[in-house]
Simulated scan of single mutants.
Amino acid sequence: MKTLTTIIVLTLLVFFGNAQESEEKGQTITVTIENITNSNGHVIISLHNEATFMKTAPLKIEKSVIKDGKITAILKNVTPGTYAIIGLHDENDNNRMDFETTGMPKESYGVSNNPVLFGPPQFAQAKFNVTDQNIEMKLIF
């Protein structure tokens, strides 16, 4: 009986140890923005693949408090692949970008790689690869 109990306990320990390990797989993307014009609202950082970019809900999202015109957001457990990041200064905390009647954004935003934008951002301009290394990037609004 004692041997059976020991085997069950060891099996459970291995099972839970592997489950925790699988939850921690993937890389970390640390995003910093240092040129935020005011401390109203929050900054929302969203991770997208080509299928979700500017179309549907992001794969991951982090909402950051602005301190001294800066934020740092950390996206954890990102599996290898090709992604793009969109950052939005959601000044009125309504969790979406607001637009002028002309269609121009009312709130500051930026995308990974900091391309000069003439029109809506394109995935091809913002994409980057996640491999086996953590990533640090700066976005410019």
Rank of each mutant, 00 (worst) to 15 (best):
P80M: 07
D90V: 11
D90I: 10
G81C: 07
I44L: 13
K63N: 09
V65S: 08
I74E: 15
I61C: 02
K70F: 07
V65N: 07
R96A: 06
P58H: 11
T30M: 05
A73W: 03
I33H: 01
M104K: 12
V9T: 15
I36G: 08
G81Y: 05
P105E: 09
L75T: 10
I45A: 04
D132I: 03
P121E: 12
E62R: 08
K67P: 01
I7P: 10
I29G: 08
I7Q: 14
Q20V: 15
T56F: 06
I66R: 13
G119E: 13
L4F: 15
F128Y: 13
Q133D: 13
Q125R: 02
E23M: 09
T101N: 03
G26H: 10
T5Y: 09
N134V: 08
S108K: 05
L12T: 12
P58I: 11
T28E: 08
K2L: 09
K70W: 06
I44E: 11
M104D: 10
P120M: 09
S46C: 08
A124Q: 14
I71P: 04
N18F: 15
F128I: 12
I66W: 11
N114F: 00
L13T: 15
K63A: 04
D93Q: 12
I85R: 05
K2C: 05
L75N: 07
S112T: 02
V14S: 15
V65L: 08
T131Y: 02
V43E: 14
T102A: 03
